[in-house]
């Protein structure tokens, strides 16, 4: 009887080691680390919080998006150009004179920026547009206008599945994806925890009073009940890092953009929800 128990434990241990090994695999054929069960944070939320997101008249982040929609048409900067001058209406399927529609953008971001040879997320892309094309001063990262504008652009991809092929070594984002993966599995902070300890190993479990989610990024920017405001993915990542008593990186830092690139890949197939509502 005793021997049997020991064997069982050994088998379980062996199996979990094999699983762990599988999870670390990173070829383009590699299954998603969650297998088939990729879950949006929405599915972990209470019915009350879900209801807030389901109706845009009840989503408290939406007034910021309305303001951004007004800014979309307003000329700005020395170039006196508006977003609409280049891209047309924000929901224009053709994407205005430059032919770059906003629909689908957030589902495939971060994208590779040839100029810096680095990935660029939606926020950084908007800021770049402001400085280079409008010749204006860019909004500050995590400022209300930038969060609102990110929300407006993200909204155009609602319902579309997240795409990423950054695990492919030929993908230009691969190096960033790799760095992001390393970050994800790296223990850090006084609590010595990696992202994976909560969001891969224990998603669905409760830590004190907190139900852990997979830590997916498909809902950002998100209105957080705790913040009582809408915020970026990087603001959330900073909060996560503080929570495990690690020094947070700056919003917009290479570290977080790399992690964002990797998180997008982990969440591929998930339907885009931004601006969402979370606890």
């Amino acid at each position: 009887m005793k021997i049997k128990t020991v064997t069982t434990i050994a088998v379980i241990l062996g199996a979990s080691f094999t699983l762990a090994a599988c999870n670390m695999k990173s070829t383009s054929e590699a299954p998603n680390p969650y297998g088939k069960e990729v879950r949006s944070g929405y599915s972990y939320a209470t019915p009350e919080t879900q209801a807030m997101q389901d109706d845009d008249f009840s989503n408290p982040g939406m007034p910021l998006v309305d303001t951004a929609a007004g800014m979309w048409n307003k000329p700005a900067g020395e170039a006196k150009k508006s977003c609409a001058d280049c891209h047309g209406a924000v929901d224009d399927a053709k994407g205005g004179p430059v032919g770059i529609p906003m629909k689908g953008v957030s589902a495939k971001y971060p994208a590779y920026d040839e100029a810096t040879q680095k990935p660029m997320n939606l926020e950084l892309r908007i800021m770049k547009c402001q400085t280079e094309n409008q010749k204006a001063e860019a909004f500050k990262y995590d400022s209300k206008p930038l969060v609102g504008m990110t929300g407006l652009v993200a909204m155009q991809s609602r319902g579309m599945p997240r795409v990423s092929t950054a695990d492919d070594p030929n993908d230009k984002l691969h190096a960033a994806w790799k760095a992001g993966e390393e970050f994800y599995y790296q223990r850090r902070g006084q609590l010595d925890l990696a992202c994976k300890h909560c969001h891969e190993d224990n998603a669905g479990n409760i830590i004190r009073a907190e139900l852990l989610s997979q830590g997916q990024s498909n809902g950002f920017p998100t209105y957080r009940l705790k913040w009582q405001g809408m915020g970026s993915l990087h603001k959330r990542l900073g909060g996560c890092n503080k929570e495990i008593r690690a020094e947070p990186y700056k919003s917009g830092s290479d570290e977080y953009v790399n992690l964002e690139t990797y998180l997008a890949w982990r969440g591929r197939g998930l339907v885009m929800e931004g601006p969402s509502v979370r606890k």
Binding site: R208, E210, K226, K235, R236, K242, E243
Partner: peptide, 8 residues
């Protein structure tokens, strides 16, 4: 009301 959840 639960206090002490994940912050940020």
């Amino acid at each position: 009301v639960t206090i002490g959840g994940c912050g940020g």
